[in-house]
Simulated assay, not measured.
Amino acid sequence: MSTEELDSVDRKILAELTGNARIPVTELARKVGLSKTPVAARLKALEESGVITGYRASLSPIKLGLTHVSFVEVRLSDTRQKALEEFNAAVRRVSEIEECYMIAGGFDYLIKVRSRDMTHYRQIMADVISALPYMASTSTYVAMEAVVEASALTP
């Protein structure tokens, strides 16, 4: 199922689930204007097609004391496929790395790191990020304020 195949009801279902993934199917059906059975069928189709990839709790990084956000430009010493695969696998194991993107440009990856404070970030950088495979160099940018930050897409 692609975004072109989503109709207005599917989009309403996704919008409601984005706001509250724990909404009962009966309430979801009422909100989108259908009965329970067709909504349940649509949910199943959205899940099977991969539009809905899962359900999870959204945690507040602030309430968890993770108020410091840094973005790290990473340059690798080797960008052959095997090196990229090893780097990707290693990054996925680091809990402090909230997001990581391979970049087409003047560096290889952009990593978002969430930590308690600058001291904690320096420890993560020294002990974890600098030890990632094929690491050549990094540049860090500290976020002063989140202007727009979202953990989920809205349909």
Rank of each mutant, 00 (worst) to 15 (best):
I103Q: 00
T53R: 10
I52R: 02
S8N: 08
T138S: 15
I62W: 06
A45E: 11
G54A: 05
I129K: 06
L84T: 12
G19T: 04
A15L: 10
A136E: 10
V72G: 09
L66P: 00
A57V: 12
V147P: 09
I129D: 03
E86Y: 04
R80M: 11
N20Y: 00
D127N: 06
G33P: 11
D127W: 05
V69A: 12
E99V: 07
D127Y: 02
R114G: 03
M125I: 04
A146G: 09
T26Q: 09
L17Q: 01
P133K: 00
R122G: 01
E16V: 14
S58G: 09
V94Q: 08
K36L: 01
A83T: 02
M1F: 00
R92C: 10
D78R: 13
K82T: 00
V91Q: 07
Q81H: 08
S130V: 06
M102W: 14
T37P: 03
G50T: 04
R93A: 15
P155R: 03
V113F: 06
P155T: 11
R93F: 06
A146R: 12
G54I: 04
I111F: 15
N88G: 08
A29H: 11
S58K: 06
S77G: 10
I13F: 03
A131G: 14
A136H: 11
L14V: 05
L28H: 12
D117E: 11
H120Y: 06
G50Q: 00
